[in-house]
Each structure stands twice: as C-alpha cells, then as structure tokens.
Computed example of a mutant assay.
Amino acid sequence: MFFSIRELNEGIAEKLERFNAKPFQKKEGSRLDAFLAEEKAALLPLPEIPYELSSWKKAIADKSYHVSVEKMLYSVPYEYIGHGMEIRLTRNVVEIFFDGQRVCSHTRLRGRPGQCSTVPSHMPPEHRKYSLWDGSRFVSWAEDVGPHTAVVMRGILSAHAVE
C-alpha cells in the first residue's frame, strides 16, 4: 500500500527495473540489454528548455490597441487595431500572433481582473506623450503650485491606487 505519490513512484520504479532486467522468453538477453546495445546510442539529448503546456485563444485588437485575454488587457502595435489575433498562453507568458507571426509578448498578468500591460512602443505617436503623465508628474506640478496642493495630489493618487 502506498501513502504518497513519492512512495507510489518508488514502487513503480522498483517493479520496472525488475521487469526490464527479466530475460526474454524466446531470445537472448532482456529489455535492458536490448536498450543498452541498440537504442541508447540513438537517443538525442533532452531540450534545454522543458516543454511548457499552452492554450490558444483568438481576439480582436480593439481601438485602444489591446486584446482582452481572460479579463486582462495586453497591448499590440497600433497597426493591428481591428485585426484578429491568435494568442498563446503559457503559465507566465502571453504571446500574440498575426498571420502566424509573433507580434509581441507580455508577462502574464495575475490577480485583479482588468489589469493592463501596455508597451509604449505599441502606442500611436500621439498617445506616447500622454504615457509620460504618471503620478510623479502630477505631484511635481502640484509642488510647483504649493505644498498643500502637493499633499492633496498625493492623497488623490493614493486613493486612486487602492480602488
């Protein structure tokens, strides 16, 4: 009787070793002898990168140059707006293809639905200038107005980050 997968695997390995060493009934040797003499030399080394399971989905790049995949948004170059894309999902990566060619990839987002992964180079040129408008820019502007304005701006930004 086995009480864990490890114990089961050890039991199987022991039985398999005995089975492979057992002599053939109608010819000389055993399965182990045949493997060592004929097959082992023909084996190729295992790939350096292990196989990773993936799934495929289809999506259309929306007008915000993103595709929605499992309630998360991933950017594609803006030239693909309105085009159908094939998406390959692995545990950690989202790869986006058009006509069989990989267009881009993103680290897979986890957690709260609606998160967005945007690569600035995917944006149209007129949108890129707005990507510089982050919290530090607003705080800097508020500090130029006055210290109390900066406090209020930090409060607004921290409240927005929690939502």
Score class of each variant (00 low, 15 high):
P113M: 05
E39M: 10
P125C: 04
N92V: 03
P120D: 15
E163A: 09
A61C: 15
S75F: 07
K27Y: 01
E86F: 09
L89C: 10
G100S: 02
S54I: 01
W141N: 01
H83Q: 11
L157K: 02
S136W: 13
F98R: 05
E52R: 15
G100K: 05
L157Y: 00
E86Q: 11
E48A: 12
R154A: 00
K40H: 08
W56A: 02
K15A: 10
I96V: 10
P50R: 13
T149D: 09
S131V: 03
K58Q: 11
T107R: 14
E48T: 13
L89P: 01
L109Q: 11
A13K: 14
E163D: 04
Q101M: 06
G82E: 02
L8E: 08
E10G: 07
H148I: 04
E79F: 03
S75Q: 07
A61K: 06
E79H: 08
V93G: 02
E7K: 12
P113E: 02
V69L: 01
K27S: 07
V119E: 10
E17M: 09
T107A: 13
S158M: 07
G114Q: 03
S30P: 03
A42P: 00
W56P: 00
L109W: 00
P50M: 07
T107E: 12
L157P: 01
R31P: 00
A13L: 14
S75C: 12
R128H: 09
A142C: 06
S4G: 10
M1P: 05
S136T: 14
L44C: 01
K58R: 09
L36R: 13
G82H: 02
H106W: 08
A142W: 05
L16M: 12
D33V: 12
E86C: 09
K58W: 03
F35L: 10
T118V: 15
F98M: 03
D144G: 12
V76Y: 13
R31V: 01
M72K: 12
F19M: 08
G111Q: 04
T118M: 13
L109A: 15
G114Y: 05
I81C: 04
G82R: 02
E163F: 00
S54V: 03
R18I: 14
S131T: 02
K15V: 12
H127N: 07
E10L: 14
L36N: 15
L53I: 03
I12G: 00
